[in-house]
Lab assay of single mutants.
Amino acid sequence: SEEELIEKAEKLRKEFEFIWNGIRFIIRENADEIRRFEELLKE
């Protein structure tokens, strides 16, 4: 039914948001290391 689809979509959206926030947190935490690594690659 349509309601089930909406519920599934909402659940997926929440899971995606949770994963995305996790990725963003990891990137933020490691931003300095990532930048340093990029500098090494440029040399």
Rank of each mutant, 00 (worst) to 15 (best):
S1M: 10
S1E: 06
S1C: 14
S1L: 06
S1D: 07
E2S: 13
E2D: 07
E2G: 11
E2N: 11
E3H: 09
E3I: 12
E4Q: 05
E4S: 04
E4N: 10
L5Y: 03
L5G: 06
L5T: 08
L5V: 07
L5D: 03
L5C: 10
L5W: 13
I6G: 02
I6S: 04
I6M: 09
I6L: 11
I6V: 12
I6D: 04
E7Y: 05
E7M: 05
E7I: 12
E7Q: 09
E7W: 07
E7H: 06
K8R: 07
K8S: 11
K8L: 14
K8T: 10
K8N: 09
K8V: 09
A9W: 15
E10K: 06
E10W: 13
E10V: 06
E10S: 03
E10P: 02
K11M: 13
K11P: 07
K11I: 11
K11S: 11
K11W: 11
L12Q: 02
R13M: 09
R13L: 11
R13Q: 10
R13H: 12
R13P: 09
K14F: 11
K14Y: 08
E15H: 14
E15Y: 14
E15G: 08
E15V: 15
E15D: 10
E15C: 15
E15Q: 08
F16R: 01
F16E: 01
F16Y: 06
F16W: 12
F16L: 09
E17S: 04
E17Q: 06
E17L: 13
E17A: 05
E17M: 10
F18R: 07
F18A: 03
F18L: 08
I19C: 14
I19W: 09
I19M: 03
I19N: 00
I19E: 01
W20S: 00
W20E: 00
W20C: 12
W20V: 05
N21I: 15
N21S: 07
N21D: 07
N21Y: 12
G22N: 08
G22H: 12
I23L: 06
I23P: 00
I23H: 03
R24N: 09
R24C: 15
R24E: 13
F25T: 06
F25Q: 10
F25I: 03
F25C: 11
F25P: 07
F25W: 11
I26G: 00
I26M: 08
I26K: 00
I26R: 00
I26P: 08
I26H: 02
I26V: 02
I27P: 01
I27G: 03
I27W: 04
I27A: 01
I27H: 00
I27C: 14
R28K: 07
R28I: 12
R28W: 14
R28C: 15
R28E: 12
R28D: 12
R28Y: 10
R28S: 09
E29L: 14
E29Q: 12
E29D: 09
E29H: 13
N30K: 06
N30T: 10
N30S: 10
A31G: 07
A31N: 03
A31M: 12
A31F: 09
A31V: 08
D32G: 05
D32Q: 03
D32H: 09
D32K: 11
D32N: 06
D32L: 13
D32E: 05
D32M: 04
D32S: 10
E33P: 07
E33I: 15
E33M: 15
E33A: 13
E33D: 05
E33V: 15
E33R: 09
I34K: 04
I34W: 13
I34L: 05
I34T: 02
I34D: 01
I34M: 03
R35Y: 06
R35H: 06
R35S: 11
R36T: 03
R36W: 12
R36D: 06
R36F: 10
R36Y: 10
R36H: 04
F37A: 02
F37K: 00
F37Y: 06
F37I: 03
F37Q: 00
F37G: 01
E38Q: 11
E38R: 04
E38G: 02
E38Y: 14
E39I: 11
E39F: 09
E39M: 07
E39L: 04
L40R: 02
L40M: 08
L40N: 01
L40G: 01
L40Q: 02
L40H: 02
L40S: 02
L40I: 07
L41N: 01
L41E: 02
L41M: 03
L41D: 00
L41K: 01
K42R: 10
K42L: 09
K42I: 10
K42V: 04
K42H: 04
E43W: 13
E43L: 12
